[in-house]
Amino acid sequence: MSTSFNLRFYRAEDEAAAIALWHRSWQEAYPQIDFASRLKWWRERWRKDIVPKAEIMVAEQDGALIGFVTVDRDGYLDQLVVAPEHWGTGVAYMLVDEAKDLSPKGITLLVNKDNARAIRFYERNGFEHAGEDVNPTSGRPVLKMEWKA
């Protein structure tokens, strides 16, 4: 298996792999939550809320999807997902750089307050704290973060 990967825009045929990767990465980050029970909701959200409204850049290696980032027209980064075995390899940095290229005026995002790893990652990538909120779906406390060009 090679250590290099390439970036490209999302294609409709990536849907199943993207949703499976989304599920697997969130399950790794939050093992106490049963994400398998949410797959139908994720698929619906992907099809109705994310794909029609966002630019999606994917990272692939040897023909397999290993990450993706979604940024909507208002500069909201909804999802940054990287396969757990690729955490710490630079894939996420490349995807965030692509998100910045897609939304050069700035990016906002919400991150779970208990996801210290993600918060540190965004801070290292120039994002600043911009308030607190509660995720309307999960009820979990989140931080609003933003990057300005």
Score class of each variant (00 low, 15 high):
residue 15 E to W: 13
residue 11 R to G: 02
residue 25 S to N: 02
residue 19 I to V: 11
residue 42 W to M: 05
residue 32 Q to M: 02
residue 11 R to W: 02
residue 10 Y to E: 01
residue 8 R to H: 06
residue 45 R to I: 09
residue 39 L to T: 05
residue 27 Q to S: 04
residue 33 I to Q: 04
residue 31 P to E: 00
residue 17 A to R: 00
residue 21 L to S: 02
residue 26 W to N: 05
residue 21 L to I: 02
residue 43 R to N: 10
residue 24 R to V: 13
residue 46 W to L: 14
residue 27 Q to L: 02
residue 39 L to C: 04
residue 30 Y to G: 05
residue 12 A to K: 12
residue 29 A to F: 04
residue 39 L to Q: 07
residue 34 D to F: 12
residue 28 E to H: 05
residue 38 R to W: 08
residue 34 D to L: 13
residue 23 H to N: 15
residue 36 A to T: 15
residue 23 H to T: 14
residue 46 W to M: 11
residue 43 R to T: 09
residue 21 L to N: 00
residue 17 A to F: 00
residue 30 Y to V: 06
residue 21 L to A: 01
residue 36 A to H: 10
residue 44 E to T: 14
residue 26 W to S: 04
residue 43 R to E: 09
residue 13 E to K: 11
residue 38 R to M: 12
residue 48 K to F: 08
residue 10 Y to W: 00
residue 42 W to D: 02
residue 11 R to Y: 01
residue 46 W to P: 14
residue 16 A to H: 01
residue 10 Y to N: 03
residue 13 E to V: 09
residue 34 D to A: 13
residue 45 R to N: 11
residue 9 F to N: 09
residue 27 Q to W: 00
residue 23 H to C: 14
residue 14 D to W: 05
residue 33 I to T: 05
residue 27 Q to N: 00
residue 23 H to Y: 12
residue 31 P to V: 00
residue 36 A to G: 15
residue 42 W to S: 03
residue 46 W to I: 14
residue 9 F to R: 08
residue 30 Y to K: 07
residue 48 K to C: 11
residue 26 W to A: 04
residue 9 F to T: 09
residue 20 A to M: 02
residue 37 S to L: 11
residue 34 D to T: 11
residue 38 R to L: 13
residue 21 L to E: 01
residue 38 R to H: 10
residue 14 D to F: 06
residue 37 S to Y: 07
residue 30 Y to R: 06
residue 28 E to N: 04
residue 24 R to P: 09
residue 29 A to S: 07
residue 34 D to W: 12
residue 33 I to D: 04
residue 23 H to Q: 12
residue 36 A to L: 10
residue 31 P to I: 01
residue 39 L to K: 05
residue 41 W to S: 11
residue 21 L to D: 03
residue 38 R to P: 05
residue 36 A to I: 13
residue 37 S to H: 10
residue 31 P to G: 00
residue 19 I to R: 05
residue 31 P to Y: 03
residue 39 L to P: 03
residue 46 W to A: 12
residue 42 W to V: 02
residue 18 A to K: 08
residue 28 E to M: 01
residue 22 W to S: 07
residue 25 S to V: 02
residue 20 A to Y: 00
residue 19 I to M: 06
residue 40 K to Q: 09
residue 15 E to P: 14
residue 30 Y to A: 06
residue 40 K to G: 07
residue 46 W to E: 13
residue 15 E to I: 12
residue 48 K to I: 08
residue 40 K to S: 09
residue 18 A to P: 08
residue 26 W to E: 04
residue 17 A to V: 01
residue 36 A to S: 12
residue 11 R to K: 09
residue 17 A to I: 01
residue 45 R to D: 13
residue 23 H to M: 09
residue 25 S to H: 02
residue 34 D to Q: 13
